[in-house]
Amino acid sequence: MKINGYQTVKSLEEAYNLLNENKQNAIVAGGAWMRLSSKVIETAIDLSGLELDQIVETKDAFEIGAMATLRQVEKQEGLKNLYNGVLSKALSKIMGVPIRNVATIGGSIIGKYSFSDVLTPLLVMNVELEFYKKGKISLEDFLVSKDRSKDVLVKVIIKKEEAKAYFHKMQKTGLDFAVVNVAISKKADTFKIAVGARPSLVKFALEAMAFVNDAKEVTEEVILETALIAGKELKFGTNSKASEEYRRNIAMAYIKRGLREVIK
């Protein structure tokens, strides 16, 4: 990566304008991932002065500033209880503490990384993103949106819900990217199942969700069938980490385990 200029902005407006002034201007959040790319950045926009690193608990949500580090989010007491702490757990599987002290939640979302262990658990929660200009958009819509216009992510809003959740990252060693990751949540009788790093971007297993959500009772047979449906409907791919077939097999195994856990 090459950076030609650097600007610490005083307001979101300034950030937004600067961002759109030149195609090659970009926000640098943690800057950890950007370093690995070969991008040329004309002006790097630093949001440090805007207090976007706060995590605020309101009556019905957690509002996480886009510049909060993954470690801050992981260690936030309130979030440790939400969806039985699935987000903390997922974040703790990302590299080591020193990277999580730098990488931000905002950068992790905007990047739409296909290997992401941040997006998969967030997707099965009720999450809204707040942009400076575009306003609020659900995480689900953001992930499928083709809108490429540049905007500043301000907050990530996680609604408080009475729900249980499960996350698993299959990785070969402690510093590995996910070979596959699976998140499942259960709110009342509604299940959400998301599978990431297939190796492409995280997706809901919609047919499997429909099947399990229709079932009167989630028996062991239903669980097995749900996993099978998910395995069939989702596309998996082969790369140097694993084959398509292996990814499918472990995704199904962890969907089964996840379902068993959230119905406990």
């Binding site: 070969k172 060693t173 402690g174 510093l175 590995d176 990217f177 140097s240």
Partner: peptide, 15 residues
């Protein structure tokens, strides 16, 4: 393909 520690996996203390 795996010319770095992100893709070439030496054991970490977790293993």
């Amino acid at each position: 393909i795996n010319n770095n520690f992100l893709n070439y996996h030496i054991p970490t203390r977790k293993e």
